[in-house]
Write a protein that binds this DNA or RNA. Structure first.
Lengths: 345, 345
DNA sequence: TTGTACGCGTTATCAA
DNA sequence: TTGATAACGCGTACAA
């Protein structure tokens, strides 16, 4: 600690606390002589105003918080996350803000919110019980949610998950696939996809809509759904399960690229030719999607733009209230090499 | 804002501020009846203690700061950075801390430090003038430096840049290369490599040491040094310059993988065969190094471990003072496919 | 330029 | 044991 406080400096300089405060915040109000004198003493003792005390009266901290649903070390492994941070970072630079990464505290998002001193929060993929939402709404600082089901009165940035999912499923159907395995991200809902919420819910709705147009639904036979851990291992397991079941699919559509890639690798290990023996579609367009061979057809989302817009909105909200917008950013099917029509039987 | 403060709650509940405070911090000291009464009121009004005011007396914020030398959006593009964050994140999870990313404020690291309320700082690649160092030392909170020249009395985590650089240069020399271009990271020192400090300085020292063992030095002819922006474009430019000069090198050793990769791509665009026409070595072992073809021979460093150890040390420092250690983590040459002996003339 | 009240909690001390 | 009163931490705003 700069072991000294404003009183110490005032004492040593033989002036009042106010004078010391002015020296830092309003130099014009001091005579040049006392100003220099005070600054010299401060410099000598290594004094600078305590930022906590300062925030106390100013009501500002100079930081925004990003609430993440998992621990920092987990979330950072998500390849989209750094891109998202990049967008936020641009706004931070422009506005001179720091960025606090705030994981749940002892398992509770609510506790984390209540204990964190920032000028505003961005929430990422928040899927919490109502009580947390109440905290959000009556909170002392503005919020912008990202990737969650929008809350009334709270600005939200989302990407068109449903649209992207629709496009990708439509593409498979147009290629002629009718035996499709959906590898979902583990949700804690044991495959009861009708209960999916948030990002997951939107994606499944996108699939269902297009399936319905063909008179199809997730029936456990021609179209089935299986939950996997969102990792390469999870994808590999998912592949094993669907491939060794009755009624093999001709295409696998995964709700994350990492699952798709794990499944693809497992398929290739088994000697399958992709896409001739089995087609694959992912979601996210992470870097590896374009590096694996065959390159993975997937749905891309503007992660950086998402971060930028969310932070932009939050900054606006912080220094003036604007009305709550709900922004939807586009997603896009990126067609690469992992899909072809199914073999004729 | 939870528009209410402790006084409001005390008033509504018909108790004193103390009672309200106890309800949150020391429930045992209240009768069950008043406790529940107070909590009910608090819940109803959506009250929770103001974290800033709380930090004021507790002296704790529940967060550590990571001082980064550039803006967040720039630093996040460094592929090693997320790995580094992962290590820090693990410690944050264990200790229930948030992580504040703190870029320079209006260009000044010092200002950023002085305005940030955290329980301790990690600094990454800090290469600042003395004045900042003084701030660091007399600061109100503990510091751990990472990737900078160690400061007396301040714990430091570094990787063995010199050792890694030596290994990689030695490898080139052993393969028979004597015409070598060093692509350095732009330093603001116009290629005056003797003035390099920090990571850059250590790496250049590593090169020089091994060169000296062969009676070589950076002489502008057989061994030359050129600064590039650390990006693919920068590497591409670097390649063009050295390739179209008199006395073409037989090997390029870059101080970052991203430079090496940019240079490699430019060389391949020009129709060169790597490594037969030109050998390449990088530094960092980013993911792309192992994906590009031919795979890049480079020096790997334990980024995650670096973050973990640094954060670990900081946390220890925060809740008890331990003596300042200077830890050096190993680096390792990863031999892949981008180097072969030079052609005989 | 200075004195003083204030912001918002926490905590030591004191009273019932 | 339970609760209240008052001081405290550090800087800022405003009247003097």
């Amino acid at each position: 600690m700069s072991k000294f406080n404003i009183k110490d400096i005032a004492l040593k300089a033989g002036v009042s606390k106010t004078a010391v405060s002015f020296a830092f915040n309003n130099p014009a109000r001091l005579s040049e002589k006392t100003l220099n004198h005070i600054l010299a003493i401060a410099e000598e003792l290594g004094y600078s105003p305590n930022p906590v005390a300062r925030s106390m009266t100013s009501g500002k901290t100079g930081a925004i918080g990003l609430l993440v649903p998992q621990s920092i070390d987990l979330i950072i492994r998500n390849p989209n996350f750094p891109e998202f941070l990049e967008g936020i970072g641009e706004v931070c630079t422009r506005s001179g803000l720091s960025l606090m990464l705030v994981p749940p505290l002892k398992g509770s998002m609510r506790r984390a919110i209540e204990n964190t001193a920032v000028d505003g929060f961005l929430t990422l993929g928040l899927e919490e019980e109502k009580s947390t939402m109440k905290v959000v709404q009556q909170c002392r600082v503005p919020f912008v949610t990202v990737d969650s089901d929008p809350i009334d009165g709270v600005p939200a940035i989302n990407v068109d998950n449903a649209g992207g999912a629709s496009q990708s499923m439509k593409y498979l159907l147009e290629m002629g696939h009718r035996h499709i395995a959906i590898l979902a991200i583990r949700s804690g809902k044991q495959g009861h996809y009708k209960e999916y919420v948030g990002t997951l819910g939107e994606r499944i709705q996108g699939y269902l809509k297009v399936l319905a147009e063909q008179g199809l639904t997730i029936n456990g036979h021609s179209v089935r759904l299986l939950e996997c851990v969102s990792s390469e291992e999870g994808g590999a397991e998912g592949f094993q399960t669907v491939w060794h079941s009755r009624n093999r699919p001709t295409a696998v559509i995964a709700m994350s690229d990492i699952i798709a890639i794990g499944a693809m690798k497992a398929a290739q290990d088994q000697g399958l030719h992709i896409p001739e023996d089995l087609s694959f579609v992912g979601f996210d367009d992470i870097m590896q999607a374009n590096l694996i061979r065959p390159a993975l057809t997937t749905v891309s989302q503007p992660s950086t733009e998402k971060g930028r817009q969310a932070a932009d909105l939050l900054v606006k909200l912080i220094d003036s209230s604007v009305e709550a917008e709900h922004i939807l950013l586009p997603t896009q099917l990126v067609i690469r090499e992992s899909v072809c029509p199914p073999r004729k039987k």
